[in-house]
Design a protein around this nucleic acid. Structure first.
Lengths: 115, 115
DNA sequence: TTTTCATTTAGATAATTATCAAAATGTAAA
DNA sequence: TTTACATTTTGATAATTATCTAAATGAAAA
């Protein structure tokens, strides 16, 4: 029971929902997410950790960067159902549309990730 | 967007999920809920207020008591979908089975609600 | 009209959470 | 083997939340 409410808690914060919606369209590194959400790197890292523990995402190494993406083989039915629903529920929101437009033009090479 | 995360917040707390699952089977008053969750009356009242603001429940008067029940004409699609999923997600949990067994035998007349 | 009693509100407190700056880590490139 | 830099961890702080007791409210019954 605690496990399920932790999944709900994970999507109860706007920045984390924005991260999930972006990752549903494209894998991203911490500094790319930071550049869109305009919050500090440690805060992004903390949100990613919460989403990972809840079972939504996983990470893979890519040179200097760590790519975060939606988990590949999800077995938890709550997580499966919620990922499926999130796009539908947030489709009409302006913030999601803006974020998705922005990730198309994000370039990690040009980002200075510590500032 | 804020409105949707508030809905997730509402179901991110175990006592509130237990209340929703019970109300999906039977309307209940504050003191009946209190007798099952073993928390104080004001705390139950606060949880019900959060669930009401999120759009899950409504209340009707019944003599001395106020009956809380699942909202009758829900238009918010997130709330509709979540109520539909909650039973499925929690069906296997021991707490839910215990709670549902208990509400069958609850008798508001015998409960002393202020203690 | 007074009393009773279910519920809500107020006020206080302890726990949790989102956040940041600074320091640590770890790895790829020079 | 240094250096550079993306990310994580640490430590601190402000905001939010769950909870309680005590007081207030409001309506039904006596």
């Amino acid at each position: 029971m605690r496990e399920i409410t932790d999944i709900f808690k994970a999507i109860s914060e706007q920045n984390r929902v924005r991260i999930l919606l972006m990752l549903l369209h494209k894998s991203l590194c911490v500094c790319e997410i930071k550049s869109i959400l305009n919050i500090s790197t440690p805060t992004v890292s903390s949100h990613l950790n919460i989403l990972r523990k809840a079972g939504f995402i996983e990470d893979t190494k890519d040179g200097k960067w760590i790519n975060y993406r939606i988990k590949q083989n999800i077995t938890n039915q709550v997580v499966i159902d919620l990922l499926d629903s999130l796009v539908k529920w947030y489709a009409d929101t302006e913030i999601m549309q803006n974020d998705l437009a922005q990730i198309e033009h994000v370039d990690r090479i040009q980002l200075t990730c510590n500032n």
